[in-house]
Design a binder for these strands. Sequence first.
DNA 1: ATGCCCAGCGATGCTGGA
Length: 260
Amino acid sequence: MRIATWNINSIRQRMDNLCAWLKERQPDVVCLQETKITDDAFPRAPLEELGYNLAIHGQKTFNGVALLSRHPLEDVTPGLPGDPEDDHARFLEALVSHPGGTVRVASIYLPNGNPVASEKYPYKMKWLDRLHDYVGERLKLEEELVLAGDYNVIPAAEDVHNPAAWIEDALFRPPTREKFRALTHLGLTDAIRASSDAAGLYTFWDYQAGAWQKNNGIRIDHLLLSPRAADRLTASGIDKHVRNWEKPSDHVPVWIDLDV
DNA sequence: ATGCCCAGCGATGCTGGA
């Protein structure tokens, strides 16, 4: 089973690229972020015509997550537990039911957190704490669990072209990375890092200042796997070439293959 | 040294992104 994540930066602006990439990569499940659309306006038809079931959790203007799946989606649950006041559409979980069993998949759009001196940074840190609590509970189920999305966290120096320029940024400053490590130390495997120590495996390049042309990128889109999912991991990849397409998102798709 | 670009909203220049 192939599972992918992609921050598409507006479903309306990216539908042509999304459909072209679906045909090319043939994923079974896709976690989307930054759909930027309300559920009633979500363009379902082109995706359903390609054979995907949809689960969507959106809002007007910002955020918005979705799941596409060739297999049936059950237990569809929007929202990360732990803060009833949080009305951002940043989390959507479902159980993918395939012929050999089930895989639980969550599409995650973690808060950016900049500027650090604003209320946005504590919101990000609290969101990481909530995710930590959620993962602790979920791992008790000993399922195949895939937490995929835009984490807005650069895990380590080898995941950023120019670490010095990012050291005070909400995506890379040490307290952020500390919380991300605490999360993975619960027992999650970073799928890309399971197969390569190479530096320069980026998933985002800013639209500004020729960042793409200079390969001034960062790795912030991750698939984190439960032990049972990690045991089934056979391949992973970053579809960097999509950043060269017309009207690209600033993020590119990341995918894994699970032998299930 | 700083901003550069893109999207949404909605009517024009702002916010948010990372």
